[in-house]
Amino acid sequence: MKARTFSFRRVTSVEEALAAFASCEGEARFLAGGQSLLPALNLRLDAPDLLIDISRVEGMRGVSVSSSGLRIGALTRHVEVLRSPLVAEHASLLSRAAPFVAHPAIRNLGTIGGSLALADPAAEFPTCILALNASLEIAGANGIRTVRADDYFRALYETDIGPGELLTAILIPPPSHGQRVHFDELARRRGDYAIVGLAVNAVIHDSNVKEIRLAFSSVGPIPTRAKTAEAQLIGTFLGAEGIASAQAALANDLSPDGTDEVSSETRMHLARVLLGRSLNALLREDK
């Protein structure tokens, strides 16, 4: 398991990164934390001609807050998301999800931007940014643009990031009054990719659901919102009945593929269980 040969270039600015990509005659990849790219290289599943090391690009790392919300630099490492007081205050869903991301040593190098750019449908952060209604800041030849998380995930491992573009930051709107968040997943072992995971972001007043976004992992090619279930819940009193009807509504939202270990039916069942448990947890917190 040794990677094919490639050239390597370290860049220190976004402009330099984009220029390096544009000038590469073959295939180029941006290298951030490398925690998903390196296995792919070692396994020769991916074999680019050029790796552009962006890990030391100025200004792409760290967390800041403004009136428009939280800004997390794409190079912010999982461990930094996990420990950031700003994230805990302004986007606690991410703080809750971070411990589920792989293992400590992976979290020490892996970056949130890397996770979102790869867009593994089993990963935790993609569901979180979907649930948080976050936006993604993407730099390209024509400057910086932002895309809403709802429009960002396109297909399996495919996002709105075009060739030669670079994800630079994640923008999370400020929490609303009454916001309740929850993250949970069902994984065979601690740190494994989940059979199913769920990020919930809701606004609840006196057990009345004002807003809710439900984003599942591992139920399809991309992190998936359960919009029918959301619609069932919005405007209702959060209780056993509402939860049951949201669980039933998942049939309209999800159609997970079966694998050799987990059939489609089992995954669907587990998604319903997880939804029920997560909503009940919100309910408990609300009381």
């Binding site: 370290r10 296995p39 040593a105």
Partner: peptide, 29 residues
């Protein structure tokens, strides 16, 4: 495992445990 699963290759990089199989030598420059 050379894919960051097993932890046998952990080293301390700038004081934090990382998988040396999931990092290129050039990244440690």
């Amino acid at each position: 495992c050379e894919m960051g699963a097993c932890g046998a290759c952990l080293v301390s990089l700038e004081g934090r445990a990382v998988h040396s199989c999931l990092m290129l030598a050039v990244q440690a420059d």
